[in-house]
Design a protein around this nucleic acid. Structure first.
Lengths: 220, 220
DNA sequence: TCCGCAGTCGAACGATCGTTCGGTCGGTCG
DNA sequence: CGACCGACCGAACGATCGTTCGACTGCGGA
């Protein structure tokens, strides 16, 4: 990347306990992962240098290496956090019991919530290109998650709870795409998460058109 | 990027006229832009080296520079192609006349079609991070396009053609997100573009649920 | 026949990348 | 007080980046 960098920000020391200066910073690894995930999303993983990361953390590049193993380890840690959040949804009681449609709607709701709660980490996951082994591993796990949703869409369609189309797999792709597109514009505080869930559920299951009868909102 | 590269492919000479070898290649700039856009999407713009690009074109890095001005110029050319396609939609007769909903549905249909026809270029546009001046310019243009759609959604909502929600701007974001998410999975030949248009239109305007009355498909 | 020139290439440039290393500083504890 | 240690830093490493340069090649027009 040769061009001039965007605005550029950051530089405050680090974690919660705001002491004078150089008092007792003690970076814990997870807070550095958080910083890294945020910068990765701003610049893109490949365009982010370790200099960028260490500057965002408020220390030099060599100090930064005292706390983390390397760039790819930071990426992996952030992706694991995102994947843990997503796969956790699939094990919730409401995701494994009930009619296919009820389970699907629960998962969509929770997916929006996890997305909002772990925005930087999930954003990172959704923008992977698969250049390193770590990225390919995460992409594989993500495909597993999408496959689970696709299976549920297929079930719900077979049960007559969703409109039969030419291909339920396409419906599943569109549904996942709709939910995942949130990372491109949603920012915490912009609108309440509950309102966001309601909007996504309505769009996905009832559409934008007027004059259609209400068919029961998401299990709230 | 230190890690091992993904599979790696490509290497055939270049353009349509399949001559023996080294007969009369004559690379035209637009075909190189196409190659570049494809590789940019596979690896990501920042992770793509000029070596990668020239190899995909079948020549050396220095030969490649004989035909193109540089990496960023290739990006700009690809982005211009995507933006031209998208903004062209807004000038079509069916996009400027008729009820807000009719115009909106026409634009969505055409947006899907342009997305399918210019898949690599639009994909590139939708994955920008804004690291260079070129990227920020393209992001600005893209925001203009999204704003046009958002205005139309607002009109259609005010006219009672779309269900009133807490915020039409959110509906517009979701609609754009749904359409744009196609670049993450659609590949030419996977399903017919007409079928894709129908699926997206149904999902966006009528939702996935069963037992709702048909409300008239997109103007076809 | 010879010239020009587009196409190709190897080699190298300065810059920046991720990472390592040796050493300094300032607290903590025996 | 002195040994120790975690936090921190400057400097440098080899590799790779985007880009430039000069030279070679082979065909078309004069």
């Amino acid at each position: 990347m040769t061009g001039a960098r965007p605005p550029a920000r950051e530089g405050e020391p680090p974690t919660g306990t705001t002491r004078e200066r150089r008092a007792r910073p003690t970076y814990d690894p997870s807070s550095l992962v958080e910083v890294a995930a945020r910068v990765f999303n701003e610049r893109g993983y490949d365009a982010t240098s370790m200099e960028d990361l260490s500057a965002a953390a408020g220390i030099t590049k060599s100090s930064f290496y005292h706390h983390v193993r390397g760039k790819e380890a930071l990426l992996r840690a952030a992706l694991e956090r995102a994947l843990d959040g997503l796969f956790g949804i699939l094990e919730e009681p409401a995701a494994v019991a009930g009619s296919p449609l009820t389970r699907l709607r629960h998962i969509v709701r929770r997916q929006v919530e996890v997305l909002a709660a772990e925005l930087p980490h999930v954003t990172l996951l959704l923008r992977l290109r698969g250049n390193t082994e770590t990225e390919r591993w995460a992409l594989g796990r993500r495909r597993e998650f999408d496959a689970a949703i696709a299976a549920l869409v297929r079930e719900a369609t077979a049960a007559g709870e969703l409109r039969a189309g030419p291909d339920p797999a396409v419906d599943a792709r569109l549904l996942s795409g709709l939910v995942n597109s949130l990372v491109d514009w949603y920012r915490p505080g912009r609108i309440a998460v509950d309102a966001l869930v309601a909007e996504v559920d309505r769009m996905a299951f009832e559409g934008l058109l007027a004059n259609v009868p209400a068919t029961g909102g998401p299990a709230s």
